[in-house]
Design a protein around this nucleic acid. Sequence first.
RNA 1: GCCCCGGUAGUGUAGUGGCCUAUCAUGAAGCCCUGUCGAGGCUUCGACUCGGAUUCAAAUUCCGACCGGGGCGCCA
Length: 458
Amino acid sequence: MHLICPSFSRDGFRMDDTVDLGNRVLNSGLSKDLAGQTVTVAGWLQDTRNLGGIAFLLIRDRSGLVQVTCLKKKLGDEVFAKLSGVPRESVVAVTGELKPNAQVSTGFEILPTAFQVISEAGTPLPIGVIDKVGVELDTRLNSRFMDLRKPQVLAIFKLREILIRGMREYLVSQRFMEVTTSKIVAAGAEGGSTLFPIKYFEQQAYLAQSPQLYKQMLMGAGLDRIYELAPAYRAEQSDTVRHIAEFASLDIEMSFIRSEEDVMNILEGLMAHSLETVLREGKQYLDELGVEVTVPKLPFPRVTLADAQKLLAEAGMPVKGDLDTESEKKLGEIMLEKHGAEMYFITKFPVEIKKSTFYAMRDPSDPELTNYFDLDYRGEELVSGGQREHRINVLINQIEEIGYNPKDFEFYLQAFRYGMPPHGGFGLGIERVLHMMLRLPNIRECVLFPRDMYRVVP
RNA sequence: GCCCCGGUAGUGUAGUGGCCUAUCAUGAAGCCCUGUCGAGGCUUCGACUCGGAUUCAAAUUCCGACCGGGGCGCCA
C-alpha cells in the first residue's frame, strides 16, 4: 500500500496517507443529483485517456463505470503525470467532487481531491479486459480472474445466480425441502466407468456421480419432497462442448406420485418460473450478452420416444434406439416448428435403453417401456427423470437383470423394506440450462473454474 | 475411447521450403495533444511449443512428446 502522490499540494489536493474507504459508494449510486458533493469511489482503473492537459480515468466497480477527470492546470504537472501513468487494472480509490457535465456519457464526472493506488497492476496484462482483440476460451480460463472482470463474462454468472434463485423460489413454494447428501460414496448409481476413484482412509471410495440412491432413501425416511443443488462428478471420456467432469446438478425427489406425470408437472413449473425470473430480474445481463430468452408456455409438449422416432423418420432422418446427437438437434427443430416449443418432454423410454437404470419403474401397461423421460431444450438434453421402482422384489430383480449383486446395494435396499412410498424425481444440469438459454458456444463458459478431461487448474 | 484439425510477440493473427533481419491489429514503454468515451498522432519493444530427422536451405516437410480446438459415442 503506498501513496501515489507525496507531492500533492496544489488546490488542496490531499497528499496525506490514504483515501478513507469507509465513505465509499458504488458507481451505480452516483448521479447528477449529487452535484457538488464530495464522494469516494474505489475499483479497477479500466482505462486512461490522456489528452495532454486533461486526462480521463475510467474506474470500474461491480456496479459499473465512473469517469474521473484530471486537469493538469489544477493538479500540477507532477501529480497529473502520476495519475495518468497508473497501469490499467490497478485497484485505486478516489475522493473528489461530483460535477455534472453534459460532455460525459453519464452526465457527470468526478474531479479528484485525493487519489490512492491501493494495488498496482503489473504489465502487460495476461489478457485485456477491454482490448479490441479476441481471446480464446482456453487462454481466458487460464486467467479466469481477469476474464471475469469483463461485464459480459460476469453477466453469465449473474444470470446463473438469478436462475438458481428462481428455481429455489419455486421449489420452496411447492414445499420442497433442501437437503445435502454426501459426495463421497462407496457405489455409483450407474456404471462404474464414470466414477472418480478416491482413497478414503483405508477404503476405496468414489466421488458421487449423482445423489440418486440417497434421494430415494430419503423418500423412505418420509421427507416426501426434497431437492439438492450440489456438484456431480462424472469421469466420462466426453470431450465435447456440453460435457464437464464436475457440474451443478439440481436433483429433486417426491413421494406419493401417481406416475411420472406428477414429476413432469413440477419440472415444467420449475423451468417456467425460473426462466421468468431470469427475464424479470436479469434483463440488463441478457442485454449485455445480446441474448433473448423466451419463457416456455405450460404445459410443455410431450412426445414419446416412439413418436419422436416417427417424427424424425418423416423428416427423413430415421433412427433406431436412442436419439443420437444429430437427431436430437433435429427433433429440437421439429418441436419448435410443430409446437413453437423450445422445451419439450421425450417420454416412455424403452427398457432396452434404460437397462442400466435399475431403479426405473417400468410402464404398468407395457413391460417394454419405462416411466422415464428427458426434458430437452432446443435439441439438448437438460434433464433425465421418471418414476422409480419402489417395490423391493421388483427392484432386486432389476438389479440382478443387469448383473449387479443386490448385496452391494443393501444399504440402499434396506430403505425399501420397511415402507417406501411410490416416488419419482429428476436430475437437472444447471450448466446445460445456461448453455442453451444463453446460446453459449461452450458449456465451460458458464462454470467459474471448469473441470474437464484435461483441466484441473485453476 | 474413436475420427479430423491446429500450436507464430502479453493477446488475436498473416505467412505452406530460399523473397522472413516474420505481416497486421491489439498491448507495453516513451513523446505530443484541454473534452475523451473503440480518443488521435509519432517513435520504440516484443514471437515461430519442445526434442529428433530430411535438406545446400525449415515457421513452412517428416517422426515423437506436450498443449489446444472441433465432431462422434455417451450423457446433465
